[in-house]
Amino acid sequence: MYTKNIRAKLGWAFLLMSVLIPTSKAQSLSISPEHPNFQLMSVQTQGSGTDVILIPGLASSRGIWTNLALGLQSSHRVHILELAGFASTPAISNRDGKVIAPVVDAIAGYIRTQHIKAPAIIGHSLGGEIALMLGVQHPDLVGRLMVVDALPFYMLMIDPAATSENAAQHAIATREWILAQSPEQFVAYQKTSIARLAKTEAVRSALVAAGLSSDRKTIADAVYELMTTDLRPELARIKAPIEIVYAYDALFGVPAARVDAMYRQSYSSAHDVHFTRIDDSFHFVMLDQPERFSSAVASFLNQ
């Protein structure tokens, strides 16, 4: 019964995949082997100036940031991440089931070893959760945070009354369902999901390809961790200003005011938080409304 419901309920909110577009004129970097989590991500840098770190979401390529990074590189040094097990970055075979928390430590280590001072962090989807956790656990390392279409507790998108205690059962069932799908079922579900995640039809085939290039177990483990992590009680620890950018479209089937209220209530414990809604967009705001999204980023960085 639950697995049938999960297909319907996750809808546009199920955080999967991204466009697989190569980043041009970028220098590839690896995390220093001296850091214990150096295998957890790869980084490309481009441009010069103040530092901006871009974190893609679940099963996403760094390519979702290509257009944004090209616009920023004349005035910023842009660090574009890709997480191990997603898209073209190899998975880690001996991972203990944790995906998000170790990456947070890896990014903190990267900021320290590269001597980056107060970078702006922009994270989409699961990358937004990582950005928030970085601000919670390492408040002195970040200058400002932008969270794109993500909540501090993902389960609220499925059940507004969810708690971290009752989320575990749902998370276990979802992880098992992802792992149990046949290759044909997995492809079919990726195609169905991406139609809800990207309004722009032209990008959908690449989105599906990126998801299918990702490691299934890494996806399943990340979804479980995402569904069982509730950062709301810890948001007050974040010192940096937070900008929440989120999508809305009439096809969601709910009033815009209801979506506005969900985001504001979810982030109510944060000290310095601002909200920007981008209409006529699905989950991949930077692909559906690139000009409006770039404008929101420019305002965020120039504050």
Rank of each mutant, 00 (worst) to 15 (best):
F38T: 13
G85R: 05
I53C: 04
L207T: 08
A106G: 12
A206T: 12
F300I: 07
L134Y: 11
I238N: 14
D51W: 01
Q44K: 10
A69F: 08
A250I: 10
W65E: 10
H79W: 14
P255W: 00
M146V: 02
Q114V: 05
S281K: 01
Y189G: 09
G253P: 02
T192D: 15
R204F: 07
M286W: 06
A171P: 09
M286H: 13
A171Y: 02
L151Y: 08
Q44F: 00
Y267S: 07
R7P: 01
T113Y: 04
A209R: 03
P152L: 08
L29M: 12
A161M: 07
V297Y: 06
R175V: 07
G85Q: 08
A256G: 04
S164I: 11
L226M: 15
A180I: 08
A202R: 01
S32Q: 09
M227Y: 06
G57S: 12
T218W: 00
L226C: 12
V285K: 05
S281G: 11
I111V: 15
H35W: 04
S48W: 03
I242V: 15
R112M: 00
A161L: 06
P90W: 01
S295T: 13
G143S: 10
A257M: 07
A101E: 13
A101P: 02
M146S: 05
T200H: 02
D51L: 01
R204Q: 15
Y246G: 07
L179Q: 14
D272Y: 00
V254T: 15
A84E: 13
I80K: 04
I242N: 13
Q169H: 07
Q137R: 11
A69V: 10
A198S: 11
V208C: 08
V104N: 09
M155A: 15
L179R: 10
Y263S: 07
S24Y: 02
P152W: 07
Q190I: 03
